[in-house]
Structures are given as C-alpha cells and as structure tokens.
Simulated assay, not measured.
Amino acid sequence: MTDVVRLDAVSKVYGTGQSAVAALREVTAGIPQGSFTAVMGPSGSGKSTFLHCAAGLDSPSSGSVKLGGTELSGMDETRLTKLRRQRIGFVFQAFNLVPALTVTENITLPLRLSGSRVDRAWLREIVSRVGLDGRTGHRPAQLSGGQQQRVAIARALMTRPEVVFGDEPTGALDTMTAREVLRLLREVVDGMGQTVVMVTHDPVAASYADTVLLLADGRIVDTMTAPTSERVAERMTRLGAWV
C-alpha cells in the first residue's frame, strides 16, 4: 500500500540547553492509504506531538515528514496553511464548530474560507453518510454532542482530504455516543476509502483501528495489528517508564 503520510527519523525538541525536552526521538512511521491508525501512549509519550508533526501543525526539529509526495519540513506557514486546508481534515475533541452557523454552513466553512466552490452532490452524500439528514438547518446548540462531532467529521471530509487526523475525537462523549462516532470513523475508512489517524487514550477506541502505534518517551515502542481493547489495555500497562 502507498503511504499517505510518512515520517522518517523525526525528532522534536522543545526549548534549548538545560531546559530542552525531547518530545519525539527519531520516529519513523508510515500511514498506509485507506487505513485506520490509532496512536496511543501514556501522558508525555509524544502522541500529540506525533499528530502535530504528521499533520503539518508543527515542524520537526529534524527528520522528514511527507504528505503524499510533498515534503512538509521546511515549508513556510502560508504554504502549510494552504496545504492543511486543501489536503488534510481535522476532528478535535472540542468539536470546534461555529455557534452562529448552521450544520451546512459549518460543514462547508473550509471551502468558503479558501474561496472554493461547494460541490452540492458531495455535500448531500456526506450529510447522508454521517447521519445528519434533516439536521442541516440546525445550529450546534440544537444538536447533541454526538451530532456535533458528526458535523465535525463531515466538515473534515468536505474537501476530500488525503488524510483525516483525529485528536481524542471521542474524549468529550459518553460511552454509547463515542461508539457511534467510532463506528462512523470505521465506515469512513471501509466505505469511503478514507485514511484516518486518531490519537486516543482509550483502548476501546483504539480497537476500532487497523493498527495501533504505541509511543513511550518519544519513541514508537510497539505496533499492534488487529487490536482488541483487552490487548491494548494490557500493553499500555507495560510502556516506557511504566515497565
């Protein structure tokens, strides 16, 4: 399979001298096209930094990050912003919807910001796939948490991105609603051929992925395929300094 995202020997150091902290240390990983990857690790393991570097939200101190054939390292912020808007989707724990806008307006906001035309047929398909038929005129305050996260997922898909990054996308949801959102992300991969990378602390959430990357002390220390929540939870107790 072709790698949509590729990190080669990526390190990220915050601060200098005595106060320097290495958040990532020589991380190499590939995210295959059409796959669902979960990134896990204890607090301070580097999983958020991994996502930020992979998604072009932060620049590595050394190493290479590629989206498709495009090298992100060394790009200026203007070019990175344009690339993120056109080629990457984001789903966050806090939904990040605009309260004054309707569901349709929130979903199409990235296209409006970039001055791009809205493909109405694609919009209808996405709205249907994420289960928001009949809700398109509502505003976020009129929706449940799960419905708001569905809007955020639809917004992430609207630009037909090469990869969707989720940062704890179920972290603010109750257990039942979280499972609905995870099933939707699974369907986005299986039914639409999308690539999803999700940072999570929840072994149940990770079990929906094809592959789990386990980080500790800024390094990938294990890769688990066909994960179950039990195997992930057990492995999480034996990571890095916790061993």
Rank of each mutant, 00 (worst) to 15 (best):
A152P: 08
E168S: 06
T16D: 14
V199F: 00
L123H: 07
Q86K: 15
A205F: 04
G17V: 09
V243C: 00
L173S: 04
W242V: 13
Q148E: 02
L80P: 05
R219D: 10
G15S: 11
E162P: 10
T37K: 00
D202N: 12
E71T: 15
K12R: 14
G146F: 01
M176H: 15
W122A: 10
D133Q: 14
V13N: 06
R6V: 12
A154F: 03
L51I: 14
T70V: 12
T78E: 14
P42V: 01
R129N: 07
A156L: 02
A178W: 14
L132H: 09
G68P: 08
L213Q: 02
T237E: 13
E105Q: 13
D8R: 15
A178R: 13
V189C: 05
H201C: 02
V232M: 05
P169R: 08
G56A: 05
G44E: 07
A233K: 12
S11R: 10
V232Q: 09
G193A: 11
E105M: 00
D174T: 04
Q142R: 09
T211V: 10
V127K: 04
V127A: 03
G89T: 06
Y14S: 12
R231G: 04
G131C: 13
L113K: 10
C53A: 10
A121V: 13
G131R: 13
T81F: 00
L51H: 10
S116D: 15
W122M: 00
E77T: 08
S61Y: 04
R129L: 11
D8E: 15
R238G: 04
A20P: 08
R238M: 09
D133H: 07
E168W: 07
A216H: 02
R6I: 11
V13R: 14
S59D: 14
K82H: 14
A100W: 02
L24G: 02
T237N: 08
R150Q: 01
L7Q: 04
I31E: 01
R135Y: 09
Y208E: 11
T108H: 04
P169S: 10
L83F: 03
K47V: 00
R139W: 02
V118Y: 07
V118C: 08
S19P: 03
F90Q: 00
T170W: 09
A94N: 14
A172W: 01
H138W: 07
P169F: 08
Q93G: 13
G74P: 03
W242G: 10
D167N: 00
D58F: 11
I153V: 15
T108W: 05
N96R: 10
T225I: 12
A22I: 06
G131D: 13
E168N: 11
V181G: 11
L67Q: 09
D58Q: 13
V27F: 03
E125V: 11
G41P: 00
A100H: 05
G74N: 06
D119N: 12
T16A: 14
S61K: 07
